[in-house]
Design a protein around this nucleic acid. Structure first.
Length: 204
DNA sequence: GCGCGGATTATC
DNA sequence: ATAATCCGCGCC
């Protein structure tokens, strides 16, 4: 693999995720610099969509590194991941937040009430800002002309500025930050999403 | 088929 | 704190 991006994405997800901080993603005239990501491993990770095996929805996770896994949730939101590791492993990095560094007008997409720093602050907002959706699920980022470009940082984010903690919105054991401190973000960056612990299930 | 609940967000 | 709003997936 002469492609350095392919080489990076083929590494274990816990190595790839923090190294995507500071990377840029470009699509549809918008560029976002990633400030927050989460690692999801395969079948052994109780917080992962792949935990219960392959289904039509999560099929992209089981593909080779460099594919996009875009899923629909809560009846109204899309979130985007980059698949990592070996084919069949089903590991991926959720793109949770970033700073819009180019195409800010475009990234707004009619969301008049959002501050500029909030346009890609949160996984569903980030996906909207970039103009990604259902049709991008399974897209191969490594293919020429993919239309979505992922560029690792020229200079990695200083390791002393990287924070790790529990994954947001994950219930049950997968949300245990002691076992799975797999959310990575750039300390002090205003575009990192507000941390919200997974809400306890409402009783009826 | 039925029913649950979700890797979220905007708003009360 | 909670509604919004589809639909995937497990189970009958």
């Amino acid at each position: 693999m002469s492609d350095p991006l392919a080489g990076l994405l083929a590494r274990p997800v816990l190595e790839v995720a923090p190294r995507l901080l500071g990377a840029t993603v470009t699509h549809d005239g918008v560029t976002v610099r990633l400030t927050e990501v989460e690692a999801y491993a395969g079948a052994d990770d109780p917080g992962s969509h792949a935990h219960r095996g392959r289904t039509p929805r999560n099929a992209a996770m089981f593909g080779p590194a460099g594919r996009l896994y875009v899923y629909f949730t809560y009846g109204m939101h899309f979130c985007a991941n980059v698949v990592t590791g070996a084919e069949g492993e089903a590991a991926a990095v959720l793109l949770r937040a970033g700073e819009v560094v180019d195409g800010q007008e475009r990234a707004r997409r009619g969301r008049d009430r959002l501050a500029a720093r909030d346009l890609a602050r949160g996984p569903a907002r980030l996906t909207v800002a970039l103009g990604l959706g259902r049709g991008h699920d399974g897209l191969d980022l490594l293919a020429p002309g993919a239309g979505v470009t992922l560029t690792p940082p020229a200079v990695p984010v200083d390791t002393t500025a990287v924070r790790a903690g529990p994954r947001v919105g994950v219930r049950g054991p997968g949300g245990d930050g002691d076992r799975f401190p797999w959310r990575f973000h750039v300390a002090g960056d205003a575009t990192v999403s507000a941390y919200r612990p997974a809400a306890p299930r409402r009783r009826s």
